[in-house]
Design a binder for these strands. Structure first.
Length: 324
DNA sequence: CGTCCAAC
DNA sequence: GTTGGACGA
């Protein structure tokens, strides 16, 4: 499978939080997804559900997740998804159908009372609703955290911003950022240990590949968008790309076929991104307004108190508003 | 979902 | 080297 293969190829090293500073573009969708699942797991449902049954666990997740950046001199820029490409829409449609199947399985598991299956499926069926996106934007705005609206994929836009030097890092948990050419990607920003830094140029050098060839290697091993070729893993893929120059050379001699290969190549090499955005990294968060906003959504003080205190402290200590 | 191990 | 299954977070 693709992800494990890319990890094998990528140059990744552990870095300490202390050694980092700068601006990191975060794919809002992925980040929210992670924090939603953990928030939902460790917080009582009442805490993030309003009287009319609207679930806004994202507000808790944001308050608890942002201090991690501020306390380590990192300024996040949240990049939101825009429209989608054709291939991507197909994929999303497939995922939607799959999610419905999971929900059916979930019902069965509940009937049987199988706790392990229930929690596994629940994390998969977590939805990012319009309310969640909107309230996320508003809370981030109160905290003066920069927001960028991507024309298509947030991940691609984040990588573009890193490539053009507008930000120092992409913050992401998956390996797509490497294929999108993001120079430096920080992984595991959300977990408690030290993060990992994935290095694009070092990866190309290590295997003597061009960016295009790296994407072809990934296509042979399998990506989120294709299954890859049977019997070809990371080692063989790199060797065959060296031998034949590119994906088409390999596929020709192998008599193999990868569906949508040309579209997937473009998705990584020439994604739909924009330079029409502005980010101000001198933050002056209005923590009072943020507290009020969260309270308006009926989130109990006790759940977010600690998070807001950490934001306040890190702002006071590092002077975020005159950091840059 | 990531890591480990056994089998081909 | 690659794959798939088991297993734990």
């Amino acid at each position: 499978m693709g992800n494990a293969a890319l990890r094998e190829i990528a140059v990744i090293e552990d870095v300490s939080f202390d050694s980092l500073d700068g601006v990191v573009a975060v794919d809002a969708h992925n980040w929210l997804y992670r924090y939603l699942t953990t928030t939902v797991r460790f917080t009582s449902e009442d805490a993030y559900t309003t009287e009319d049954e609207t679930e806004v666990a994202n507000l808790i997740g944001i308050v608890q997740g942002l201090p991690k950046f501020f306390e380590h001199d990192l300024i996040p820029v949240f990049v939101f998804d825009g429209g989608v490409t054709d291939l991507k829409s197909e994929e999303i449609e497939e995922r939607r159908e799959q999610r419905e199947r999971y929900e059916e399985q979930l019902e069965t598991a509940r009937e049987k009372g199988d706790a392990r299956v229930i929690s596994r499926l629940e994390s998969r069926t977590q939805r990012l609703t319009d309310v969640i996106h909107e309230t996320t934007r508003e809370l981030l705005t109160h905290l003066d955290v920069p927001i960028v609206e991507a024309p298509a994929e947030g991940e691609a836009q984040a990588a573009h911003m890193a490539r053009t030097g507008a930000v120092d890092y992409v913050g992401s948990e998956d390996y797509d950022a490497l294929l999108l050419g993001a120079p430096l990607t920080l992984r595991q920003l959300t977990s408690s240990g030290d993060p990992e830094r994935m290095d694009f140029e070092a990866t190309l050098e290590k295997h003597d590949l061009t960016w295009e060839q790296l994407v072809d290697v990934a296509l042979l091993c399998g990506t989120d968008f294709n299954d890859g070729v049977d019997g070809i893993g990371p080692k063989t893929a790199v060797r065959k790309i060296h031998e034949h120059g590119d994906l088409w050379g390999v596929l020709d001699t192998e008599g193999e076929y990868v569906e949508h290969a040309d579209v997937i190549q473009e998705l990584f090499l020439n994604p739909n991104v924009t330079d029409e955005y502005s980010i101000d990294t001198e933050l002056s968060p209005d923590i009072g307004a943020a507290r009020e906003y969260v309270a308006d959504w009926e989130i109990p003080d006790t759940t977010v108190e600690r998070g807001f205190e950490r934001v306040e402290d890190s702002v006071a200590q590092t002077g975020l508003d005159d950091w840059m």
